[in-house]
């Protein structure tokens, strides 16, 4: 019968123990990695911009498309249009003007129609358009394909 605590056994216990401890420090990140994070992916191909109920006809809403501000507009006839909200003149963020049924840049009074075409003021070119899809009550916006 060997002694319970000879050098070899202690060493084996030591190596075994530290192996387990170290493996723990490796497996911990792996397990945490595999757990899906609560916050879902921010910038994907489709962003839920608004809901049908929240957007009355003749209204607009700024939302984040990835990292960029974007504008979704519900026309008077109920149809949708969405654009990147950066004015093509300088870098201001445009907004919807229900009184004029146009998209307006407050900085230098630039106007775009609801197809994004620059119709008045300094903007040199149309807004970058996005694509709108509705699914149930949700309104999704994607890049123009």
């Amino acid at each position: 019968m060997k002694r319970l605590l000879d050098r070899r056994t202690i060493l084996n216990w030591f190596v075994g123990g530290s192996t387990f401890a170290w493996l723990g420090s490796v497996l911990h990140p792996v397990v945490r990695f595999l757990m899906p994070p609560p916050e879902q992916e921010a910038a994907v191909s489709a962003v839920k911009a608004a809901s049908l109920t929240e957007m009355a006809p003749n209204s607009g809403k700024i939302f984040k498309f990835g990292r960029k501000p974007a504008l979704i507009v519900r026309r008077v006839d109920g149809s949708f249009a969405a654009f990147l909200a950066k004015c093509t003149h300088l870098d201001c963020v445009v907004q919807y003007r229900p009184d004029k049924e146009r998209i307006w840049c407050a900085c230098h009074d630039g106007f775009y129609d609801l197809n994004g075409t620059n119709v008045a003021g300094p903007p040199p070119r149309p807004l970058d358009a996005l694509e709108v899809h509705t699914k149930g009550d949700d309104v999704y916006v994607t890049r123009k394909s």
């Binding site: 070899r8 060493l11 030591f14 190596v15 530290s18 192996t19 401890a21 170290w22 420090s25 990140p29």
Partner: peptide, 23 residues
């Protein structure tokens, strides 16, 4: 901090394996 902990554990393991090699 996490790296330090992991490194420390690895150090222990390394020492263990090194001793093992000597034996």
């Amino acid at each position: 901090r996490g790296l330090a902990i992991s490194t420390l554990l690895l150090l222990l393991l390394t020492i263990g394996v090194a001793i093992k090699i000597r034996t």
